[in-house]
Amino acid sequence: MSSIYVSSKDVFVDTVYAKDYIQLDRVSTIYQSLKDSIKKPLKMILLYGKPGTGKSMFLTKLYKDLSDSQSIYYYQTPILDENEFYKLLAQDIFETKYNGELNFTQFMKIVEAKKIDEVPVVLLDEAQLYSEALMEKIRLLSDTRAIKFVITLHKTGKEDLIAKEHFQTRIWESIELENASRGELKIYIQKKLMKANCFDTANMFTQKAVNKIFSITHGNYRDTNKLLYSLFDIYNAYKETHQLSKLNTNYVSSKLIEMAAIQTGLINA
């Protein structure tokens, strides 16, 4: 039987599963607004934010929630080759398998030929990795209203430029995702642990400990996951070397948080 520290550590493995989605008030509101936007006749929806703010998790959750009721397609990893991109869309959306090369003109012919009543929704993650030429084609495709795109972008100077230049006239809805606040971070950590029945470790996170974590991760979900994974790894190491008595297991000490941050590289020691 694995210890509570191992179970707690596994909770914070950096994966994007819809089941791992944590309901936070602000995040829930944003998610609901995204769901509502999809129902609207929008050409394109932009979801942007810093890395680790939960954009991928949003798309995953959206895909899971709408896949039963709507024609929705989620491309987690970017398809960098233009020909492959068209072929994949033609196959998934229009059920047309194309063996040879498929360019934009040919793909547009397929779109026109296969009239679909319900506008399919295509979710594109990490859109900043697509080439400018392909992004332009995506823009033209969204103009036909034959496909609705929901794309996620990292919020940097360059990506803002892409958003402005290519999609300014087409994006009807843009949603920004932000890091968690101190309060949200505490709820996030505790909810995540309690979801995995790790109640004892969830209670170890006092506001002081959460503040310490916040000072290191700035509320970034990905960094928090990394830090807490490493933290429970350290707890487990103490336990396995029979040194757990050296630690106070009633609450998470700042020392262990800092050690975990050093281990993960969040603190440069």
């Binding site: 020392k255 800092e258 050690m259 603190i267 020691a269």
Partner: peptide
């Protein structure tokens, strides 16, 4: 790790 932490502290 503890010695690194001490150094950092």
């Amino acid at each position: 790790l503890e010695s690194r932490w001490l150094h950092y502290k």
